[in-house]
Amino acid sequence: MKNIVLTSVVTALLVFSGCSSKDPIVDESATEVVAQPAQEVASVDTETVGKDDASVTSENGMSGADSNEMTMANLEKEMLSVYFDFDKFNITSQMQTKIANDATLAKTSANSFMIKLEGNCDEWGSDEYNFALGLKRANAVKNALVSEGVDANRITMVSYGESNAVCSDKTKECWAKNRRVDFKLLP
């Protein structure tokens, strides 16, 4: 057989030229940093606070924003996660009392916040169907809240599929804890 020497530069990678650095090409954790030309900035405004103005009326002495976050965090703790049966997205009768509690909070102390419902599943698959199941669970909770008088426009939904587990043991009890809808408040 005639020997033909073929030379080939392996091109498979060459599209990797954009990846020659160790850094990822997209970093969603960081804000974009844009270099600015050096520029002199104005000095910081100062003010002197008189003795009368120095007394704080708010009891906890926090700024409005901090206080808001604290209120949201405390309210989130009071809102009860709703749990579901395997491969189901209907709300069981045991969960109705939790929904009633959540709806009351949503209409009273939490009435100035948006509500984000996060649907979650157990570890029975990373596919789209499991994400959809989590979403149908969130939607079932949304409908229940709306029928209890919560404004539908205040509610957004998202599904994390099996990717937001609170328990990682291989037990039925553990999986049951992961089949849930959590409440998050947004300003």
Partner: peptide
């Protein structure tokens, strides 16, 4: 017998 011969080249040994 040499039945098949071919040469390859790639810019970095890491790939």
């Amino acid at each position: 017998a040499n039945v098949f011969i071919k040469n390859y080249k790639i810019s970095s040994k890491n790939v």
